Amino acid sequence: MDRALGALDRPATAEDDDRAAELARWRNRLLALTAGSSGLTQRITRVREMRTTVGISEATLRARRDAAGVPADARGFFAEDLALAQWFVQRLTDDLVYLEADRERARDAVSVLALEAENVLQHRRELTQQRERVLQRRQGTLNLLQSAFLGAVLMVLAAVQAFSYRVPALAPPAVPALIALLGALALLLATLVLWLATPPGERGPGKLGSLLAGLVGGTAGWLAVTVTTHALTGRGSSVALTWAVALPCFGCSWLFMRRRLRAGTP
């Protein structure tokens, strides 16, 4: 019982997820100690029955002694048996006092442990709700950013098409790279929104997000090397040069996003 109450002395922390389980375990043990098949209640009942039986035996001895005409202060087996019965009744009464005291302490400990376990669970529920609110705010912010980004890109593209405008700095060989970069960004943002909307305990390893981040980095490298090569030579970059730049960009972006997703903060 002292060990069970000692569990209450440990300070509650936000990281101590096993505290409620430990308190519930001690509560169940005390319940078994109190109301189990060999618990205190059963022992108290049996001791009371034994004391009643001894009392009945004592009364029977007195009745037979009186029927035999033996004086109450006379020595003999009647006096010895009655003295033994009285001593036994007193011992059983003393045992009942201690057993009932233990049962009272156990019941009080069960109540305190149950209350503390409920407080711990309530604290964990509040922390979970707080984390969910933070995730919802982050998800809403990312949704707005995604919508704003895609809306701006679509508006710019629609305006370019409507006015037949051509970006002077963008060489024709870089157009496929730009289209691929925009598509990769759209996929990455949608994937991050879905990942953030999932509860932390149910999130996957984020392999798709890391892959799409690598794709964004690779297409950005493709676009950069194409624009730079065209500005210097007037031609598009070669396949070997494009791969030589895009692959390291892909790897760096993939590794960066992989670490961020593992840390839970993309």
Results as ranks from 00 to 15, higher is better:
Val97Leu: 08
Gln136Tyr: 07
Thr128Ser: 15
Ala109Glu: 09
Arg124Tyr: 02
Leu84Lys: 12
Thr141Pro: 00
Tyr98Glu: 14
Leu144Asp: 03
Arg107Met: 12
Val120Ile: 12
Thr93Gln: 08
Thr128Trp: 11
Arg124Lys: 09
Ala106Val: 11
Tyr98Asp: 14
Arg138Tyr: 01
Val120Asp: 12
Glu118Tyr: 14
Arg137Gly: 01
Leu82Trp: 01
Val110Gln: 05
Ala109Gly: 03
Arg105Tyr: 02
Glu118Ala: 15
Leu99Pro: 05
Leu99Gly: 00
Arg107Gly: 07
Arg138Asp: 09
Gln122Arg: 10
Leu145His: 01
Gly140Thr: 12
Asp94His: 10
Asn119Met: 15
Val112Asp: 10
Gln139Pro: 00
Leu135Glu: 11
Glu126Asn: 15
Ala101Gln: 06
Asn143Pro: 00
Leu92Glu: 10
Val110Tyr: 03
Glu100Gln: 11
Val120Arg: 14
Glu104Met: 14
Asn119His: 15
Thr141Phe: 03
Leu92Thr: 08
Ser111Gln: 14
Arg125Ser: 11
Leu113Met: 06
Asp108Ser: 13
Tyr98Leu: 13
Arg131Gly: 00
Arg131Leu: 10
Leu92Val: 00
Ala109Arg: 02
Leu135Phe: 11
His123Thr: 13
Glu126Lys: 13
Leu127Val: 07
Leu121Lys: 14
Glu104Gly: 13
Arg107Tyr: 03
Leu99Thr: 03
Asp108Gln: 11
Gly140Arg: 01
Ser111Trp: 09
Leu127Gln: 15
Arg107Trp: 05
Arg138Gly: 06
Asn143Trp: 04
Gln129His: 09
Leu144Ala: 07
Leu84Pro: 01
Leu84Ala: 14
Gln122Val: 08
Ala114Leu: 07
Trp87Ser: 14
Asp102Asn: 01
Val112Gln: 13
Arg131Trp: 01
Val97Thr: 10
